[in-house]
Design a protein around this nucleic acid. Sequence first.
DNA 1: AATGAATGAGGCTTCATTCAT
DNA 2: CATGAATGAAGCCTCATTCAT
Lengths: 209, 209, 209, 209
Amino acid sequence: MSQHPIDTGADRRTQILEAAMVCFAKRGFHQASMHDISAEAGISVGLIYRYFENKEAVISAMADRHKKEIHEVLERARQAPTLLESLEILFTAHCCENSPKVLSAFVVDLYAEASRNPQVANLVLGVLQTSMEGLTDLIARAPETQKSAHDLTPSEMAELIFAVGRGMLMRDVLQPAELTAEERRTRQLAVTRGLWRLLFQPENAAAYA
Amino acid sequence: MSQHPIDTGADRRTQILEAAMVCFAKRGFHQASMHDISAEAGISVGLIYRYFENKEAVISAMADRHKKEIHEVLERARQAPTLLESLEILFTAHCCENSPKVLSAFVVDLYAEASRNPQVANLVLGVLQTSMEGLTDLIARAPETQKSAHDLTPSEMAELIFAVGRGMLMRDVLQPAELTAEERRTRQLAVTRGLWRLLFQPENAAAYA
Amino acid sequence: MSQHPIDTGADRRTQILEAAMVCFAKRGFHQASMHDISAEAGISVGLIYRYFENKEAVISAMADRHKKEIHEVLERARQAPTLLESLEILFTAHCCENSPKVLSAFVVDLYAEASRNPQVANLVLGVLQTSMEGLTDLIARAPETQKSAHDLTPSEMAELIFAVGRGMLMRDVLQPAELTAEERRTRQLAVTRGLWRLLFQPENAAAYA
Amino acid sequence: MSQHPIDTGADRRTQILEAAMVCFAKRGFHQASMHDISAEAGISVGLIYRYFENKEAVISAMADRHKKEIHEVLERARQAPTLLESLEILFTAHCCENSPKVLSAFVVDLYAEASRNPQVANLVLGVLQTSMEGLTDLIARAPETQKSAHDLTPSEMAELIFAVGRGMLMRDVLQPAELTAEERRTRQLAVTRGLWRLLFQPENAAAYA
DNA sequence: AATGAATGAGGCTTCATTCAT
DNA sequence: CATGAATGAAGCCTCATTCAT
């Protein structure tokens, strides 16, 4: 029945997490039932329990997965030639449904969960700190930073960038569902680019002088 | 706390909403049981149903209350003498648990709920649009804006300010619970002020020229 | 507010029972809530408890009332000049909503209640036996009976008449609600008259001879 | 009773309906709790919901079952050699607890339910109409009818027969529970046979001529 | 006498989890 | 490995009943 006669444990876990992501984004962690997930994954409820101790463990695994994805994105961002390109990579992953897996609603729910589950909170906090350090580093090294027309430290700049990222993500869940991913992305990009201009493009200031 | 041994209907509703806010912030909309709320309010479960049709209605009433509070804050912000003071008022209300009623976790949950409940989504969207218009207006009128060293429109500036506000709020739910409200506020203010400086203080740019 | 400054206990009881009848007919004994009844009566819930010990007592009082009404009808039937007129009086009371108080659905519910509440069962049984005796007596005395073309005893004839009466009543609750009381009555009368002809009009038989 | 340790879905449904019938007859549709039914069936509450969407659905299924049983009886009645035997078959099924499944109290409750639930009303009405047509047809074809000493049409005769059937059934729920099924049957048969004599045995009339 | 706010037990239903097959 | 029937605790909600005013 499965694509291959052999499903490794990892494949199954992935399959289940994929389904869980859909359900969690659609209904939220606690509104999505194990049955929902099993149906979405096309398997039986019992099978989920062979791969995850309980629902909590699915949520944790999901958070872990989120962490890995963010780290991957960070890695890709680090390898971009310019700071603006790095930012665009980060932005696309963080803000948009374009990214294959990260759905806004899921992330908002993840933060909501973090607010009452210290384990999740620590994980998300870890992701955040690593990302912050990564971005701060990128900014500090970038030549664009040297000529910026303001006195913000790289760390402050990174903080602002992430704050705006999260803010746009929160905003995104309010969009009528009819908007396409592309439309969402465009609207968000407009705002974010405003911040980038402020932070990294001194010529406006120069014009003023 | 109650002025008289007589609780009018409005008082009861308030009492219940107050309790619900605590429970919702502590456990989330759907994890908080009606029993939790009644216990927190010190009344019986059944009594809640004399004042609210069902749990959904409690959530809606809460969202309404949030709306009213935000509008009040907006009004106060409008009356501040300078733009920066307006922003500080908005910031304090939007970002901090200092504000008597608005708890970060509740707002994050509200957005999570909005992502699946169109009625809540519309309400939150309405709040957002009114607030945005209000702030855009404030910015457009403010003398500080005239000399800013960038090309962002008032609307874009407002968008950024709100995005950062939401972003800090999301960030706030990750704080270890031990932080005092004052500490949270300070940390958030540091970031936000960075943005304000970028937007409204051209002298840095001037210094650069 | 009440028609008279003084409401005797009896008046209140009647008022409540009147309202209860409406509610019971509309929703059934156990589906009708005390609140429904109080609202229908235009009084407060608590007041019902001043006149009736509990809901059970309201149901019992209702059954009692039913008993009294049936006995009244029986008395009127007894005074009719002919047997057929007696039967018509009984029929009208037993089968039709035309009668001011007896609603089919209520009676069916009363029997359903009787099937599990021995006290109600005994009361209904008592009504039935008295009525049966009354009707048997009427039949035995009636001159029409003497020339009937069959060998049924007056008791058997009464039994049949009541059975058909109950049967029509049960049938009545299935009628679409749009039928007027008059239409219901007409349809039921047609059937019942068939039985009366069989029982009391020998000329058909004569025609056969 | 179960043929195998394996219960197919259909078996479970039957088991639940069997238990529900007992509970409904004992307490009525709305007084019987889902817990009552599960206990009577010897299963857990939750399991009922695997086989029925909700309590309403159990009631509907029960009504359906009643419909099927009545239709079966009608079929059997149709195949009886004489009209009187047909009637006896109908009678036994309609009036007596002897019939394995049809309990008087259940049927009275079914009609009570029908008076408020249009869906149930339609179903019961459908059963009634089919039965009526079937019986009318039987009567019209029966040789016994040709020589009857009255002017009732087959349809009127069928109407009377069903009315008496329902009437006896209603009467049946008042019996003290101590009566055996056989005793009930005998008493009811006595009445019903009176009607049959009136309708189908012309010799009495003839004797009169 | 009358009100209606308040209580809390109990009903319906869902769902995480287990386990026999 | 996989299934899905089965369990039962827990959640939402209703409603008979009480009682302070």
